[in-house]
Write a protein that binds this DNA or RNA. Structure first.
Length: 264
DNA sequence: GCGACAG
DNA sequence: ATCTTGTCGC
């Protein structure tokens, strides 16, 4: 799979200011409404289904592992509970991690792995934020727009924005909106409605797992990457959840990245 | 100036 | 993200 929008491919050699300018363009090109090729209700981890394969989406999980200055980017594609393809790439890293600019460090390596992928996923889960980002252009948004594929971001901690309610000690399945507050810029520069933008729901905190008598687990922070709404994003992550905290596609990609790293 | 900050 | 054994609990 190759970039549909080459002009948005993250370039690690850009200046910080140029990176932020590109992020504004990516955010302007992003769609935070549902524009899917499938019915979210047909998303499940069941290995067999009465629903014909054509209507069961190919869902990909993407994750990375690191060794010194190299990134191992891994992609695992599922149809229901079955793995239908895996791909990976080892890429040299050129810049350090900077909060808010993650896609410029890891985006290129991820696209290298996508170049190795034969199929075209109907949905991709990324490890990081999408719309929950200072300029509404987190890793999932940047990659989703560049590949023009429905994308969601799944992060283990909150980059910015504000949970509507406290996220402490919540039961499995619980969710609460993440509002833009003052940490997220509006996309429309001409808008004079920045006050109400603060109430915009840019994602959700979602308690995917909780063990009975064990230490409290932190929620996941999910957000739209591209071509999916915040509400559908949580629904999809819920439907793709298995026995662990991370949704199955992400968890499998995580394990596959580690495997590739060991034998490298 | 202070605090916050995906992976 | 990564360096890492045992250990507590379902």
């Amino acid at each position: 799979m190759r970039p549909a929008r080459p002009e948005f491919v993250p370039d690690a050699s850009l200046s910080r200011e140029e990176m932020e300018t590109l992020q504004h363009e990516v955010a302007a090109a992003a769609t935070f409404d549902d524009d899917l090729s499938f019915d979210p209700a047909n998303v499940s981890l069941a290995s067999s289904s009465l629903v014909p394969d054509e209507r069961r989406p190919l869902v990909a999980g993407v994750d990375q592992a690191f060794l010194d200055d190299h990134a191992v980017s891994a992609i695992v594609v599922l149809r229901g509970g079955e793995v239908v393809e895996r791909a990976h790439a080892v890429t040299e890293l050129s810049i350090p991690y900077v909060p808010g600019l993650l896609s410029f460090r890891e985006g290129g390596p991820i696209l290298d792995a996508f170049a190795e992928l034969e199929c075209d996923p109907d949905l991709v889960l990324f490890d990081g934020s999408g719309r929950i980002h200072f300029r509404q252009a987190g890793l999932a948004t940047h990659m989703g727009v560049t590949l023009d594929v429905p994308a969601v971001g799944v992060a283990k901690s909150l980059l910015c924005g504000r949970p509507r309610e406290s996220v402490d000690e919540r039961p499995e399945g619980w969710r609460t909106p993440i509002e833009a507050a003052d940490g997220v810029e509006p996309r429309d520069v001409d808008a004079d409605d920045t006050e109400e933008f603060a109430d915009t729901v840019v994602g959700y905190a979602y308690q995917s797992r909780q063990y009975p008598n064990s230490k409290q687990i932190n929620p996941l922070y999910v957000s739209p990457g591209h071509r999916v709404s915040a509400e559908t994003t949580v629904d999809l992550v819920e439907r793709l959840g298995g026995e662990y905290k991370l949704p199955e596609p992400t968890r499998l990609a995580d394990a596959y990245a580690d495997d590739c790293k060991r034998e490298y």
